[in-house]
Each structure stands twice: as C-alpha cells, then as structure tokens.
Simulated assay, not measured.
Amino acid sequence: MGAVDTVVDMGAAITMASGFYHAFEQDGLNQPIVATIGDSTFYHSGTAGLINAVYNGARFILVILDNLITAMTGMQPTPGIGIRADGSRGKSIPLERVVKGCGIDFIETIDPYDTKAMTAVLKKATKYVESPDGGIAVIIARHPCVIAYRGEAVSNPIPVIITDDCTECNFCLDRFECPALYHDEALGRTTINQALCVQCGVCLQVCPKGAIVRNAERGMRNAE
C-alpha cells in the first residue's frame, strides 16, 4: 500500500526503523519514523529487533497490526489467541506482555476502525517519542481479520453507498485504499464493489466530503 515507503522482508520493519533513527540522528535530523509489523510476524521475528532498538536508544513509533490470525500464510492461529495449529488449547501469550518484556514503556492498544481514536493515539505516541524521556512507542492496532472472523470483525454491518456529493477528490482511493472502492472508468466516478465491501463502515469516517453514507440515506447513487 502507498502508506508503506520501504519493504524489505518479513520482520525487517523494526530493525530498519532503528537504523533510520540512528542514521538521521547522526546527521542531526529529527525525522518522524513509523514502522508497521503484523502480529504473527512480530511473534516470529520482531522481538529480537525490538529489544535491540530499545537497548540502543532508538526512537520511533511501532504499530503492530494485530488481526488475531496469520493471514499471510494460511490463517494459522497466533500465540496471542491460545489455540495451536491443530485446534488444541495452548497458553495465550498476549502481545502487550511480550512488548513490555522487550523494555517498552509506551504501549497503547486501540481498535483502528475507530479512526478518531487511532489518530489521537498516534499523536500521543508522537509526543512521547519526541519528549526528553521518550523512546519507542508501541501501538497495538487490534481488530479481528474480516476473513477469518467475519461475524466478530463486523458485528454491526453498515451498508454504505456514495452520494452525488462526491467530488471525485480521490482521497478514499489514494489515502484510504479500501479494495472495495474503485474508479469506474465507464461511469466516470468512484464506485463501491459490493462483492468486496465487508460493511465495516470505516469509510464513513474517512470521506472528507461526507459523500459516503449509510444506504438508508436519501439522495444516493447506485453502487455495483
């Protein structure tokens, strides 16, 4: 996605962020750094890098994208949910405890589907990183995978549609990047692919023009 500028390999985000910090610091630059890593990848190969970053005094924001599943390789469970690959029960190892054990003092867990709350936490984390006594701020962005946990992930479905208030600013396409939103060349407008829409309703919070509304509203235009 466009929000990620540098991708190397599985688990590299933390060590890269640490390296970027020290490179910028050496040149006297104060450059904001945000690293993202999945929950299963963090368990797999993120802890060593985080311990190293803390030990060497790096400063950046780490967002752990916790969808409670290993979606990338076949929907295997993660150590955080306490279920083994064969379905038997195992001891749950919460991300919060692992992160704290790596020496992190700033730990916030938030549902990223609440965009206002997520934005507020990011601002809070930025202040911590830049404070004299700050360090690495870890945000655990937790929301169940919409594929693996469809009923739980979207417990209150919100069907949406795009109204004629849409100005085709492309904010939703370029910045939000939901796969259900696309520009229909034939119609010449932004459209919702209802087959891909999971009805999470997050786009209602994102559209700067308020043109995406619940489908119970009037003045709508049809979506495919």
Rank of each mutant, 00 (worst) to 15 (best):
A137C: 09
I158S: 05
N156T: 14
E130Y: 10
G188W: 04
K209F: 09
A180S: 15
I83G: 02
Y43K: 04
I61S: 08
C178D: 08
I64H: 03
T41F: 00
A23Y: 10
D27S: 13
I83V: 15
Y149G: 05
I81N: 13
L65I: 13
G135A: 08
A125I: 06
E96N: 11
T78Y: 02
L122K: 12
S45T: 13
Q199C: 09
Q76E: 09
I110W: 01
N67Q: 09
N193L: 02
S131F: 03
T167R: 13
H44E: 03
T36I: 14
R142S: 15
I104E: 08
F60G: 11
S92F: 00
K124C: 01
I93C: 03
A35F: 07
L187N: 11
N170M: 14
V129W: 05
C197V: 05
C203F: 08
I61G: 01
T41M: 03
G2F: 01
A195Q: 12
K100L: 02
V129I: 12
G57V: 08
E168D: 15
L173P: 03
V4I: 15
V160L: 07
D133S: 14
H44D: 12
N222T: 11
V54I: 15
N67V: 06
P208L: 05
L204S: 06
T15L: 08
E25L: 07
S155D: 14
A23C: 02
D86L: 05
E224K: 12
R97V: 10
A137D: 08
R189I: 10
T47A: 14
N52H: 15
T47K: 10
F42A: 02
E108F: 02
R84A: 14
C166I: 07
H143I: 00
I37G: 01
N222F: 01
G201Y: 02
L196P: 00
A71D: 04
A195M: 08
F106S: 06
Q26G: 14
I110A: 06
C178V: 05
R97H: 11
V121G: 00
I33L: 10
C203Q: 03
E224P: 13
Y43A: 05
P179Y: 08
R84M: 12
R189T: 11
G90W: 02
C169M: 08
V34I: 15
G80F: 02
E96F: 01
D66R: 04
P112L: 05
M10A: 03
E224R: 13
M72N: 09
I69V: 15
H44T: 07
G57N: 11
S92V: 07
D164C: 00
N170P: 00
A125R: 09
C197G: 06
I136P: 09
Q31F: 03
C102Q: 04
P179C: 10
A180G: 12
I110V: 15
A117N: 07
V121Y: 00
G201I: 05
N222R: 12
G19M: 08
L122N: 09
G80T: 10
M220L: 11
N56V: 00
T6W: 02
L187V: 02
T115F: 05
K124W: 00
V146L: 11
